[in-house]
Design a protein around this nucleic acid. Sequence first.
DNA 1: GTTTTCATTCTACAGACGTTGACAAGCTGA
DNA 2: TCAGCTTGTCAACGTCTGTAGAATGAAAAC
Lengths: 210, 210
Amino acid sequence: MKTVEPASEFPVPRDERRQHTQERILCAARELFSRSGYDRTTIRAVAAAAKVDPALVMHYFGSKEELFGEAIRVDMEDVVVGPEEELADRLLSKLGDKLEAEPDAQLALLRSMLTHPQAAEGVRRALARECGQVVGSAIGGAEGALRAGLVSATTIGVIVGRYLLQLDGLKDADPKEITEILRPCFRALVDHGVEPKKTRAPRSKRRRAG
Amino acid sequence: MKTVEPASEFPVPRDERRQHTQERILCAARELFSRSGYDRTTIRAVAAAAKVDPALVMHYFGSKEELFGEAIRVDMEDVVVGPEEELADRLLSKLGDKLEAEPDAQLALLRSMLTHPQAAEGVRRALARECGQVVGSAIGGAEGALRAGLVSATTIGVIVGRYLLQLDGLKDADPKEITEILRPCFRALVDHGVEPKKTRAPRSKRRRAG
DNA sequence: GTTTTCATTCTACAGACGTTGACAAGCTGA
DNA sequence: TCAGCTTGTCAACGTCTGTAGAATGAAAAC
């Protein structure tokens, strides 16, 4: 297994070949990082999965750290949701989409978020970007931030519980059912104290400074 | 630094000395495991933190895996809550207690739950034990399990978001405020579809096999 | 056809790791 | 005082890791 391949049919252009190899490496890296996390994933294992010499991984990506950075780079695609949806429903739609399509690349990020600082920072940023809108709609800035944090926490809890911890009632559940059950929760978190214009205010609790 | 200590005053009994050393090691282990997770924590680092030779750690705990197992063993203390509290409030009280007292030992477990199978299993079990009661009070078994899973997910999300990810609005928030904001969520998750007609017992006596 | 470039591999290093076994020194009981 | 057990250390092993540099051979350029 020393030669690169007989190039049996016709010679593949060099650029194309290289791009394909890089893709294979990156793909293997994502797979392994998302299955085992940063620390337990070795360059050698990635190389083996991509059927390539370890040194080639270094040559293309510089270091394990950079390879990881490339593997967890997520496209930050904005999920298209109805613009007239309420905020809570918008957030739920996003969560629902993540539950529908198994988040390949994101799992690599999530799996390492508790042990790898860069991954943690990535998750914080992604969450802030998604759930940050909750802050603005709050009475006081502090409570708004707290509510945004709780929406973030719930979101991440559900995804972690489903895909990484594989909690019993969650791992095989229907995404639609999940979001439906969560809807009242998200509404309660987002449509807080100042209830928008609905019928009545169910909450008369006053906040006190801690 | 070769001798064990001059035993300056009077000789400390052997048992006591050993127990104290073991405790020091275990304490250092918990600290490091909870800060860096299983993989990034080395026996050598634990030994150094405990001011002890690495070989002694092995001698007392057998292996890194066993040391970890000992470090994450949590006492499973049942939080004392008012027995007449509704289920949702009971679960919230437990969460609140975890937020009040920084969960030293539990963090070691949580930090590694995404990369260490044994830790994951520990978390699953702890969650099932705590939130499992939700299942029984459901209409159908499947939806009950899902709701229990979502309570678990929310719980773990909040703790992870606060202590490990350190999400902005969450890390410094007042525990009381957190639980108050979460109350409607937990109620919505637990007191589902069938609204429990006030003072009635929400628990059905029959259960079905999985 | 010759030279250059480049994708890829081979070999190896230096450090860190978990773990082991031999050994020193103290406490304990006779 | 002696032997025995226990606490603790030292030095080392074998392995695995990320990484570096030289070597190879095919494609591209001339």
